[in-house]
């Protein structure tokens, strides 16, 4: 009997640990009436779509909206429109750029593809970042102040707590890639 109980408790503890490890944060979304923004006395809270209804079916994440938005788009979970007007030119650009080559943190791989699927070139160029490689000094201080990458990351796209999602390439790997390119 005792052994049964202790085994049960141990299994329960293990399960809880696994759950905590696997998800970090359990995705959950506040109903609109409890989000501290919508007026619970107004009619909208009963009419608008609830975040949980829309977001719980998308690829999960541990930060921000708890959704992997890039993955959701790539895998076709969502099909957001690209343009309203027919004559709007939609530009997608596929080139990774390695940044922060001399920094202490791992090198940043900036994927143009994932960004231009959502954004237009003119959203970032040339007022935030010059097109010419190395022409714009990018600083983490500015990013944390809501400039440069921080205009979106930390506001609508994945937050700045996710260091390794940008700083993802070891210096050795980056050197290898850059040598391969120059050959």
């Amino acid at each position: 009997m005792r052994r049964g109980l202790s085994g049960f408790l141990a299994a329960l503890g293990l399960l809880a640990l696994m759950a905590a490890g696997a998800f970090g944060q359990v995705p959950s979304w506040k109903p609109l009436a409890q989000d501290d923004l919508h007026d619970p006395a107004g009619p909208a809270v009963n009419l608008l779509q609830q975040p949980a209804a829309a977001l719980s079916v998308l690829p999960p994440d541990g930060a921000g909206n708890m959704v992997r938005w890039v993955k959701a788009l790539e895998e076709g979970h969502i099909q957001p429109r690209t343009a309203l007007r027919q004559q709007t030119k939609v530009q997608v650009y596929d080139k990774d750029v390695l940044l922060n080559l001399k920094g202490g943190m791992p090198v940043v791989r900036f994927p143009h593809k994932a960004h231009t699927e959502w954004l237009d070139c003119s959203n970032c160029h040339d007022h935030l970042f010059k097109k010419q490689a190395g022409a714009t000094k990018i600083s983490m201080f500015r990013i944390l102040s809501g400039e440069q990458c921080g205009l979106c990351h930390g506001a609508v796209s994945f937050p700045l707590t996710e260091c390794s999602r940008c700083h993802s390439v070891s210096h050795a790997q980056a050197r290898k890639e850059l040598e391969g390119q120059s050959r």
């Binding site: 957001p80 690209t82 343009a83 939609v90 959502w118 237009d120 609508v156």
Partner: peptide
């Protein structure tokens, strides 16, 4: 429903 560029570009 819409990519960023619809509102932030168009």
């Amino acid at each position: 429903r819409f990519r960023c560029k619809v509102c932030h570009f168009e």
